[in-house]
Design a protein around this nucleic acid. Structure first.
Lengths: 342, 342
DNA sequence: ATTAGCACTCATTTGCATAGAGTGCTAATA
DNA sequence: TATTAGCACTCTATGCAAATGAGTGCTAAT
């Protein structure tokens, strides 16, 4: 559809605009790139490109700016040669990841941080918990006369716990017996299935103490809630202010407002249920408020199951090539790292 | 030192400036407040106040602005009548606290959120962990052939855990024996004391498996690190953009940059080791970068021990009366809530 | 098909006059 | 003696016009 020259010129404009955030004019192109073409020729081509919908003019006497359609073409044509990270970048990423990983949350935190540092944009990382985990067994760890910690081990190898009130004077062996009995009766259930009724039933087969039952209900409820929860990690919201398009405080406020609402962020990220890398440009975004932004997003999986999503959110004028390269790398890295037992 | 009239006028200027963020002139004062004084008289008084260091003039033909010294006086004189929250505010706070409290982190998160919402400023909450907790006992929860979760219970009733590699084919009763033995040998130690050497010693009295020893070391190290860690919760960084003094993006960037550095925030908050409520105004702040801000800060304690600090950070032109009232209330609330077992 | 040349457009900058808010000082007043 | 009216003065903010300059579109020449 576009001949080679048009394509070349369009690419130059896009990349120049991504770099400078200024409308780019025919003279600039002629000067910077040795195309063997005069500004006039380039002007003609640019005029055509505008008619075709690839360029826009902020006003008559300004240069031209790529349209969403242009970015779309640019990104799509990038799939063939996806851009690679420098040795240096890779070394940086690896060292950042090693900095401080103690638990699974740290991994996501680091990912968000790295993503934003590498791309100079805001990053969003959504970690799905696994509501499908099944109960394996529970144990009580006595604390004192009246309290114990209940530990629940699930079949995915995770452990959760909560504080339980126990009847005064209940012995360690009684607790042991209780936990063994309950473990037998509950094994294989999803955590969310263990509602008040079921728990009551199971429990009353073993004991009658009401206080303990109540705190068991509460603790298991909390654990189930925590497990079905999605967690959002944000990175580099400060970067926002470095973007030339964000010199207007009102706009920043808008965006930060959106990012502060966990619910909205989750919705935005959940929308991209797609498998591979997904780039949404400007108004392709369904959510008002980020309609003038672009987002590059990838879901990551563990054993085929989606465990989360990560995304970079920035101006439509974002460094797609770099962002995509970083994203690809992190994606791979994350899937590897998540496979290792924590 | 200041006569009543001067004091009154100064107060009016301060409160007007806090409200409007505009330099206030003699006419405005005469018009808004029925002092029975002409602008000229007020002008004379203002001139005096400037000489005394309480007022400053951005330029000749502007009104006057309170100096740090003026705020100092204002805040100090407020100690006698500390300002109270409305019924409405209290109801709001209580309902926000009830919204979602599942664990101790949620409490701090909520506190930060409430603090910022009520004061329209950035809030910082620092939660100290308790590095003094002492080892009580440990238990292993078997996961599979090769792994178990190690649970460590400390004398403050908290429980931590980590994943442990166990020798293939080690039976549950062997694990039980191992944990009992180690518990006996380690009881009463601070977590930070349980370094590699001690652990090695204790462990080799019971078993010889190197892999397990290594993962024990790692897990306990992680737990010790986590326990000695301070955690920072920020609230309402977005509010920053609502402040008239922050319409300049550069300044916002600075502040956000500081807030993003956990280390710096910790230092800032740690500096206020004071007991009661502490207000630092403008250049009273030792940390460059917030020298043009004010901070109201309170440490909170549990059983006499400092467990954290909360603060509100904003322009020197902050609503001290309201901020202090909110702070006092939250302070009390937090100390009460922390006393309850989680 | 390309390009040089030129008229034209429009945002941005610069300079300048004006309005408005506020002050300080002096002389009048209570 | 304390207060105030009056007035000159200062300095910012606003509005406006002219100059600047980057960029375009069109036409005619190559």
């Amino acid at each position: 559809m576009l001949n080679d020259r048009k394509r070349k010129i369009l690419q130059i404009i896009i990349e120049d605009y991504i770099e400078t955030a200024e409308p780019v004019g025919s003279r600039t192109i002629a000067r910077k790139h040795n195309l063997g073409l005069s500004p006039a020729t380039i002007r003609n081509e640019m005029s055509d490109l505008e008619l075709l919908g690839y360029l826009e003019q902020p006003h008559t006497s300004a240069g031209r700016v790529p349209s969403a359609q242009a970015y779309r073409l640019y990104v799509d044509s990038m799939k063939e040669e996806p851009g690679v990270l420098t040795e240096n970048d890779i070394a940086l990423i690896n060292s950042w990841y090693k900095e401080r990983i103690r638990n699974i949350d740290d991994i996501f935190k680091s990912t968000a941080k790295i993503l934003s540092r590498m791309t100079q944009n805001v990053s969003l990382v959504l970690a799905n918990r696994k509501p499908t985990a099944r109960f394996k067994y529970l144990k009580f760890l006595p604390l004192n006369e009246n309290q114990a910690i209940m530990c629940i081990v699930t079949d995915d190898g995770a452990m959760d716990n909560g504080l339980i009130d126990i009847p005064a004077g209940m012995s360690a062996s009684e607790l042991e017996y209780l936990s063994g009995k309950m473990s037998n009766l509950l094994e294989g259930r999803k955590l969310t299935e263990i509602t008040g009724d079921l728990l009551q039933e199971v429990y009353s087969a073993v004991s009658e103490d009401e206080v303990m039952l109540a705190s068991l209900k509460k603790a298991i409820g909390n654990i189930a809630a925590k497990n079905s929860e999605q967690k959002v990690f944000l990175g580099g919201t400060k970067q926002l202010l470095n973007q030339p398009e964000c010199q207007d405080v009102g706009r920043v406020k808008n965006l930060l407002g959106i990012l502060e609402e966990e619910k909205v962020v989750k919705d935005i990220l959940d929308a991209g249920d797609n498998s591979g890398l997904k780039v949404t440009i400007g108004s392709e975004n369904k959510f008002t408020g980020i309609k003038d932004c672009s987002m590059v997003q990838a879901t990551y999986r563990l054993n085929g199951q989606i465990v989360g999503t990560m995304a970079v959110l920035g101006p439509t004028r974002m460094e797609y090539r770099k962002v995509i390269a970083v994203m690809n790398y992190l994606h791979k890295y994350l899937e590897t790292i998540l496979k290792e037992p924590q």
